[in-house]
């Protein structure tokens, strides 16, 4: 995995490609949705002027956002209908509240209705979230559970594409949503895990996990590691053109014969191959759980 300058000389072609890149990470959620959809096709559902904001945050002295941090946009992707559900990581760390999570669940339900009526639409989730918003507790949890149920109901009809761009990553209940997706695309900068490293350090101590050790953390749950151990289906650079292409490529694979979350026995076998008392490092794990191993 380690490359040197002599392996990869900076040719003019590589330099031009690098300079032509348009960062997705630097975009806000609405810009991301707009950039993924074909120009001029972006149509937002429940936008800022519908003022479906969180009723719970102001009661706790927290400024709400007019879209509650989730952008639902319908439009076309390479000429075909698509719905983008993008979480705004800058607002409350992308935390899912009752309203924001319900917007995603409802968008998935609408997509299912369309697919059942013979009008296929491609659902794409842009996951940038620490999980449930603690201020909304059980209401957020319940709405995130609805997202899970809707993904499971929709995915036999159309592949559900999940994308984790970073820099926040995808944690908590929404990491389960990522695991339920038909195909998962990750950026190198992204992280995917049920419990965030800071939470593990806080609960189990720094001996268990040093959350500020970036090399260690990305070696455990970064995009490259998740891809190399087949928890993600594609690993791409931070570029909107590449993201548009990879979403289309994943969608073209169709509905998988068995979804990742249905491969319970395979994952049990994988876990059994690890000795928790002597855990492998990230490179050793790539050898034990190789990419492409899971069907």
């Amino acid at each position: 995995m380690h490359t040197t300058h002599s392996d990869n000389p900076i040719t003019k072609e590589r330099r031009d490609r690098f300079l032509a890149r348009q960062s997705v990470i630097e975009m806000r959620a609405r810009e991301r949705a707009r950039a993924i959809l074909d120009p001029g096709s972006f149509r937002e559902l429940l936008g800022p002027f519908d003022r479906l904001e969180s009723p719970w945050l102001p009661l706790q002295g927290i400024v709400p956002e007019s879209d509650d941090g989730v952008i639902v946009a319908r439009g076309l992707l390479a000429g075909k209908p698509a719905v983008i559900m993008a979480i705004e990581g800058a607002f409350q760390g992308g935390g899912m509240g009752e309203v924001s999570a319900s917007k995603i669940a409802a968008a998935l339900a609408l997509a299912r209705g369309d697919c059942e009526r013979g009008k296929p639409i491609l659902p794409v989730l842009l996951l940038e979230t620490g999980g449930v918003r603690l201020q909304e507790a059980n209401l957020g949890e319940a709405a995130v559970a609805e997202i899970h149920a809707e993904i499971v109901a929709l995915r036999p009809l159309v592949p559900v594409i999940g994308v984790i761009t970073g820099m926040i990553g995808c944690f908590g209940g929404m990491s389960i949503a990522a695991g339920l997706c038909s195909y998962l695309v990750m950026f190198r900068q992204a992280r995917l895990e049920l419990n965030g490293p800071e939470v593990i350090e806080q609960e189990a101590g720094i001996d268990e996990l040093n959350a500020s050790d970036k090399h260690l953390i990305w070696g455990l749950l970064g995009g490259e590691q998740r891809y190399e151990t087949s928890f993600a289906d594609a690993l791409i650079e931070d570029d909107v053109t590449e993201l548009r292409q990879v979403i289309q490529a994943q969608a073209a694979r169709g509905v998988p014969a068995r979804h990742r979350s249905e491969q319970v026995e395979e994952y049990r076998r994988r876990l059994a191959s690890i000795d928790p008392a002597d855990p492998p490092d990230s490179l050793a794990l790539r050898r034990i759980w190789p990419k492409g191993e899971m069907p």
């Binding site: 800022p48 941090g69 800058a90």
Partner: peptide, 15 residues
Amino acid sequence: RAHVGVVGSGDLEVL
């Protein structure tokens, strides 16, 4: 009408 910005740290939204 217009909407700009985000309710993120050091930022604001304007409707």
